[in-house]
Amino acid sequence: MIEQNAVQVGPPPTLRPVRGAARCAVVALSLAGAAWVVRAVWHLRLAAAGEPASGPPGQDGGAHRPLNALEDSYHLVSSAGAGVTAVCAIVFLFWLDQMRDNAKALTGARLVHGYGWLWLGWIVPVANLWIPRGVVADVHRSVFPERPLPTVVNWWWGLWLLGLAGGVGIIYADDTDEVIARAYEDVVPLLAADLVIVAAAAAAALMVHTLTTAQQEHIARKGY
């Protein structure tokens, strides 16, 4: 008890309010998941309509035929989904930034991954296969070194990587017209990728809630 009181001597750590950021992140992730559900519906609509007699949007020799109404609407759905996903990424990283700052303030220790990896970890080739998960793991383990990492973190990261695989998930290797052609030819891989991304968004939302709740309960127990 004496040792515990000695640790608490001095001004309390400066903590950032994170509950609001967590709620925003959950809402953003929910919207991103909904956007991918809409995209899946349009993939089904394209597959059900079938390829027009004039062929796919992309023609031989690099030419493009005029889009029909359904294909035009898919372009809008795709652009809107990309915009929602970009906003979701920003909101998620803002939440993670606040959680990371709080973890450092609570423990007084340097985290394994420096601040730059919070942003660069997502875009540096090869490193982006594990660094973002490592940043999230740092936030939890620095405060709770005795606890195992919540399983939802691994579910989120596994689904995220699966969504990236093959260029049919979060980041398409093909342009929108080529994705339309894929929907005409074989819609199943596109629908599978859509399902994975929706599941990844749901897992991310649960992870945000789980890690935020754990950190806030720790702060409350410490009386900060």
Rank of each mutant, 00 (worst) to 15 (best):
Y224N: 03
L111C: 06
G83H: 06
H140G: 09
R45W: 13
S79C: 02
G108Y: 01
H140L: 04
N68R: 05
G58V: 08
A199S: 14
M207Q: 04
H140R: 10
G166M: 08
Y184C: 04
C24W: 04
V124S: 07
A32Y: 06
S78Q: 07
H218G: 02
A183L: 05
A109V: 02
M99D: 06
F94T: 14
I131E: 02
T210Y: 13
A173T: 09
I180V: 10
V91F: 07
V188N: 11
L162C: 15
W95Q: 03
E178N: 05
A199M: 06
W155G: 01
Y172N: 13
I131L: 11
A80Q: 06
L190A: 05
L111P: 00
L44R: 14
D186T: 00
V18E: 08
L149D: 08
D194T: 00
L195C: 08
D138S: 06
V136M: 09
R23E: 13
F144Q: 06
G158R: 10
G134A: 06
L93Q: 10
W156I: 02
I90K: 11
Y115Q: 10
G55Y: 00
L164Y: 08
G158T: 12
T151K: 15
V208L: 04
L161D: 02
V7Q: 06
A63H: 12
V18Q: 02
V112W: 05
W122D: 05
A25P: 01
W117S: 08
W119T: 03
F144S: 07
Y74F: 15
R100V: 05
L190S: 01
T14Y: 12
V135Q: 08
A204C: 12
H113A: 01
T151S: 15
V139D: 01
